[in-house]
Write a protein that binds this DNA or RNA. Structure first.
Length: 487
RNA sequence: GGUCCCAUCGUCUAGUGGCUAGGACGCCAGGUUUUCAUCCUGGAAACGGGAGUUCAAUUCUCCCUGGGAUCACCA
């Protein structure tokens, strides 16, 4: 047995869950469950300017809808308020400000960090110039050259400043489970700001301190973080922290292979849920993007994903979301739902009463003819309403109207005379009608086509057996009578 | 532009120093079926290029090309 993994997802509260966040969360979740560890949610809200009201709550609500439950972090209570559980909290960074300060002091004391008084204007100007001369934009360390006395004085005067890390000389190397050894020359790294002028830490400072204090064993995140990982490793070394296991997972891509963006499609998990994808299907689909347990199957249960997950088998290259495949997968899951489950899944997507037994049966029948839950609204119409079809539609292409009428009258009598219990099960209805056809040496087409049209009113629809079962005897007879009247 | 990362069908992927390079979505053609959907069968479709190592490279190494990420007091 491997050691229990403590994994975490650290989203910034933007008001929705990015699909990439879901994928990383899933990998975190698989890994922690597989090893008997913990999956932690930590909110990274150190950017005061980008705070979104209620974002944390909606993020947690989405996790909850998906059934991906965390072990530590903020939790949503029944009354909608937030509470936190776990021994190493708080799990919201804006509540941890006092925790970061001593570490910054330590860095300052060790000479590994320094105050910087440069204005944003100067920094912007400097970067533009560097770009223009084709240099890598990087802080020029002007403030590192300041004399101790001047620094002390300006600090005492309360001058606005930030704290920067002093990147040492040399090379930084780290191991990544999915990518192997990654190394960079420190001379390519910028003196990253650790503490902003408003007293909040930057992500880089906070993530290093929090991951250490929360004893995070595996840092999984998108590959866009690779360039800043060396800075984190340097900070860990400066503070004497153990380096966790890193795994940078491949990006989720737009169709044009660029990083998945809001502009080019849906990036919010909530959007997919609203479009009628089942949580289980979404999890299966997203959880096997960049990771494939066997290569010859597509559908896996959550438990199988947990059992088979292997970080070292995660692909290195990015993945384009194949929505058609998601549709297909969603249908696979839809087909497996039982009567009650379909009703529950459909509830938010239809206007009708899903607790009505007739509606329930209709949803059950239609569930394998649609791909997304939103299609239920349309699919249900032939059951709740009825327009008598015209004679031409009722007539089978290989027969004529006179025959259609005879057949409908015959099958009507059969239905009228059949006992109620044939409606208990779809197959009983089907057996009954098929036996009738066989006994009277009739042909399927001559009977079933007019019957189906009579019941559905539609050129294309579910089978006549399904309609009989859904509608029940009374409504079925009513519709058949109307069709006979048209002929 | 600097740095870093990546490279198997259109897309998601499996895979190996020697295979007819496998599966899935989608697509096309048949079949089952009362229609549609489902389902079944078949088909087209990929190892980016060049060196090197080797008896043998899609696989290992290097270069090129291509693509991407990142270079904020955002995460």
């Amino acid at each position: 047995m491997t050691t229990p993994a403590r994994t975490r997802i650290a989203p910034s509260p933007t008001g929705y869950m990015h699909i990439g966040t879901l994928r990383t969360s899933l990998f975190d979740y698989f890994l922690s469950k597989q090893t008997g560890g913990k999956f932690i949610i930590r909110i990274e809200d150190t950017d005061q300017e980008r705070l979104v009201e209620g974002a944390t709550e909606s993020l947690l609500a989405t996790f909850s809808k998906l059934g991906i439950l965390h072990d530590e972090g903020p939790f949503l209570q029944d009354d909608g308020s937030l509470t936190q559980k776990g021994d190493v909290g708080p799990y919201i960074q804006s509540e941890r400000l006092d925790i970061y300060r001593p570490y910054v002091e330590t860095l300052l004391g060790q000479g590994d960090a320094y105050p910087c008084f440069c204005s944003r204007e100067r920094l912007t100007e400097m970067r533009e110039e560097q770009r223009a001369t084709k240099q890598t934009p990087k802080y020029d360390r002007a403030c590192l050259a300041l004399g101790q006395d001047e620094v002390t004085k300006r600090l005492a005067d309360g001058e606005a400043h930030v704290i920067r890390m002093k990147v040492p000389e040399g090379q930084t190397v780290f191991e990544d489970v999915v990518r192997g050894t990654v190394s960079v020359n420190n001379s390519d790294l910028d003196d990253q700001v650790l503490m902003k002028s408003d007293g909040f830490p930057t992500y880089h400072m906070a993530v290093v301190v929090d991951d250490n204090l929360m004893a995070i064993s595996h840092v999984l995140r998108g590959e866009e973080w690779i360039p800043s990982t060396p800075k984190h490793v340097i900070l860990m070394n400066m503070l004497g922290f153990d380096v966790p296991t890193f795994a940078h997972v491949p990006l989720l891509l737009n169709a044009d292979k660029t990083k998945l963006s809001k502009r080019q499609g849906d990036v919010a998990v909530e959007d997919y849920l609203e479009k009628g994808y089942l949580p289980a299907a979404l999890i299966n689909f997203v959880g096997t993007l960049g990771f494939n347990p066997t290569g010859d199957r597509e559908v896996y249960t959550l438990q199988e994903l947990i059992d088979m997950f292997d970080l070292s088998k995660v692909k290195k290259s990015g993945a384009v979301m194949n929505i058609e495949k998601l549709d297909w997968m969603n249908q696979q899951y839809l087909k497996e739902l039982g009567l009650d489950e379909v009703a529950e899944a459909a509830r938010p997507f239809v206007e009708v009463d899903v607790d009505d037994p007739m509606i329930m049966r209709a949803l059950f029948v239609e569930r394998e003819r649609i791909h997304r839950l939103t299609e239920f609204a349309e699919a249900i119409v032939p059951y709740t309403g009825y327009d008598a079809p015209d004679a031409e539609t009722i007539t089978w292409k290989k027969s004529d109207a006179a025959d259609a009428k005879v057949q409908l009258e015959g099958v009507r009598a059969e239905i009228a005379g059949a006992p109620d219990d044939i409606y208990e099960n779809l197959s009983y209805v089907e057996d009954r009608i098929k036996a009738y056809i066989e006994k009277n040496e009739l042909s399927n087409g001559n009977v079933l086509w007019p019957l189906r049209i009579a019941l559905s009113g539609l050129q294309k629809s579910a089978s006549p057996f399904e309609f009989l079962w859904v509608l029940g005897r009374e409504e079925s007879l009513k519709r058949i009578d109307q069709a006979i009247a048209v002929l």
